[in-house]
Design a protein around this nucleic acid. Sequence first.
RNA 1: CGCGGGGUAGAGCAGUCUGGCAGCUCGCCUGGCUCAUAACCAGGAGGUCAUUGGUUCGAAUCCAAUCCCCGCAA
Length: 312
Amino acid sequence: MTKPIKTIFVGTPEFSVPYLQGLLADPDFLVTGVITQPDKPSGRKQTLTPSPIKLLAQANNLTIWQPEKLRQDESIVAALRNSGAVLMVVVAYGQIIPQSILDLFPLGAINVHPSLLPKYRGASPIQNTILNGDKVTGVSIMLMDAQMDHGPILAQEITDLDGEETNESLHFKLATTGVPLLLATIKNYLNKSIAPQPQIDSEATFCQMITKEDAKIDWTQSATAIKQKIYAFYPWPATWTMLDGQRFKIFPKVEVLKKSGPAGQIEVNDGQLVIYCGVDALQLQQIQLEGKNRAPAADFIRGYQIKNPILK
RNA sequence: CGCGGGGUAGAGCAGUCUGGCAGCUCGCCUGGCUCAUAACCAGGAGGUCAUUGGUUCGAAUCCAAUCCCCGCAA
């Protein structure tokens, strides 16, 4: 390729950042603008906070669009057309992109999805991979169409899981394989050395957006299931339960022990904090009580006097 | 002014309501016991009680303001 490909990048959270960085660092691409979610109130003081992608775009003096509703924003269509961009790359944007915008790019719109499509279409593929205790996952690069995560696949790369991955570490791991895969795949696709493969829709599974209620622990579940939940929701929204009427967060790592007792019962023994589950028990290492800083379980035991040793 | 918890020795906390010797569990240092140890015994060091001002004979504690950390919410 002789001329750099004029590209629009579309993305929002931390997950998108390495992909934009990869495109910026590659001389075959010229990122001319970025579409990201509007600044949202965040933090305790409800201050407006720009998305990670916006910060990176600002640092590189890129044009930034932050439509409230991309679907209804007519002005952006003209702006994109005038930008001369021929390719769109979408990584975790957070809004549906209408066909009218996809059609603006002669070379197409390419999407990165952190699962082995058609498995885990939707909003929380990484979390669900861990939640279900999968042994393998991966990154898919696909051409976008009007349906969510439905377009034909250009490339996939499989990643093995060791059972100790958190949402955070798996995000990172998939970025390290996904970024080079994205760059190489775009070039191969434009060279016509790979052909898009339609997804097998009958094998598709879907995942919903994670809510904080999803992250509450049901202690009658097995210790293994609860462990997967703790890892899947770390660091956000953080798996939690209630202790003495206060929110009690549990962070990795945790260990499954072959012990049984009443579900939700706390046992303190030899400086170890163990909670009985529906099947087996969990030994905790990092916890946080409402209003307190995160602390090692041993420190927590030393200082906190438990009133009612049952977690709910 | 969205709601709430917190700041006390290196760590985690009690003490604050009801003002009156700076405490607990650990960690650290020294010595002892022990074949040995994360065990046990004895001794020790380590504090601007977040900051500033006020009330008081006397403030970690009561009053006012400020800074910082955290949970909820968004």
